[in-house]
């Protein structure tokens, strides 16, 4: 939101204003129904909420519970495991989500055959366009206990079959791999756009001065990418309380044995909502919304100090 342009018309309400309001009305109504009503609905975290009959009368009539729902939530071990998973996975995702795509973007720009590079890039963009339900079906084809490709390969090498969906120890690696796999095309697009935007005369000057490719990367490309990398990092940190529900729910197929390594805040809220433990679900959702809001505003505050143009406001 920048400074207003100088006013050309009077401050009086115009016919145009009425028409523009009409034009904006459907979307405004959408925002009220699907964004702002839920914001007020968040008070059910402080209520002893039972769903029966009308929603509004329920919200108003159900008794206040104070911080009871939060006490229940944080007394259970689930809450801490969930928060640990949410923050832990996100930290790893953020680091790898920068390191790997940046490296690959640097590499793909150096291929002698540019057309091949384009083909690789298109192929690596595919996972981005697949839904987690489809991905989960494919993972099942690999990890199914009796029919899976992974166990067939193990058997061929003389090893015992593994019941993958019951063994928590493998899943942090699987989930991290799947996250990198799905985001790799997107990340490369963002970083390649920056690399191709760098003025080629920098490189020409460097070559004339005898700089090696590695030196060019280190002293030209990476410094020019620094701003974008820092931005992507901060924006990702701002969303550290949110996770990709599909990755953590669909890919492990909601297996209870994997609870400790696959439950994040989004999964916890969904599961409790579905089992009608509304009190705990709304308390967990409240924690996520409020902490999410704080981290996003904080991230945005930092972005504005680094590069005001990129800040949300």
């Amino acid at each position: 939101m920048k400074k207003e342009e100088p006013k050309r018309r009077s401050a009086r309400w115009h016919k145009q204003d009425t028409e523009l309001t009409l034009l904006a009305l459907p979307t405004t109504v959408w925002y009220i129904l699907f964004c702002f009503l839920p914001m007020f609905g968040i008070i059910i975290a402080f209520k002893n909420f039972k769903i029966s009959g009308g929603f509004l009368s329920n919200v108003f009539n159900s008794p206040w519970a104070g911080w009871k729902n939060f006490e229940f939530l944080f007394k259970s071990n689930d809450a801490w495991v969930t928060i640990r998973n949410t923050l832990g996975y996100n930290l790893v995702f953020i680091l790898l989500g920068i390191l790997i795509p940046v490296t690959l973007a640097l590499m793909i720009g150096r291929l002698h055959n540019r057309r091949a590079g384009k083909v690789y890039q298109t192929m690596m963009f595919l996972p981005y366009f697949l839904s987690w339900v489809v991905v989960s079906a494919v993972i099942w084809a690999f990890l199914s206990f009796d029919k899976g490709i992974a166990n067939q390969m193990l058997n061929q090498m003389g090893a015992e079959s593994v019941n993958w969906y019951m063994e928590p120890k493998y899943w942090p690696y699987f989930l991290i791999f799947m996250n990198v796999w799905k985001g790799i095309g997107y990340g490369m697009v963002v970083y390649l756009a920056t690399i191709t935007g760098i003025d080629s005369t920098y490189y020409e000057a460097a070559v004339i001065d005898g700089a090696s490719i590695w030196q060019q990367t280190k002293y030209i490309t990476l410094p020019m990418m620094k701003l974008v990398i820092v931005m992507m990092f901060i924006l990702a940190v701002g969303r550290i309380f949110y996770t990709d529900f599909g990755l953590f729910y669909q890919v492990p197929r909601d297996s209870n044995s994997l609870f400790n390594v696959t439950t994040t805040l989004d999964v916890l809220v969904y599961k409790q909502l579905k089992t009608a433990t509304v009190g705990m679900a709304s308390a967990a959702a409240f924690v996520q919304s409020v902490m999410g809001c704080i981290t996003i505003l904080f991230a945005n505050w930092i972005v504005r100090r680094i590069d005001p143009e990129s800040a949300m406001m």
């Binding site: 009503l37 839920p38 914001m39 007020f40 609905g41 059910i44 709304s282 919304s289």
Partner: peptide
């Protein structure tokens, strides 16, 4: 109106009840 939902949302639980029951 457009900006606020980018930083704050009501979360899944209240969205669910509003969409399912109220709307």
């Amino acid at each position: 109106v457009v900006f606020i939902p980018m930083v704050f949302n009501g979360g899944l639980v209240s969205s669910y009840y509003i969409n399912a029951n109220l709307l």
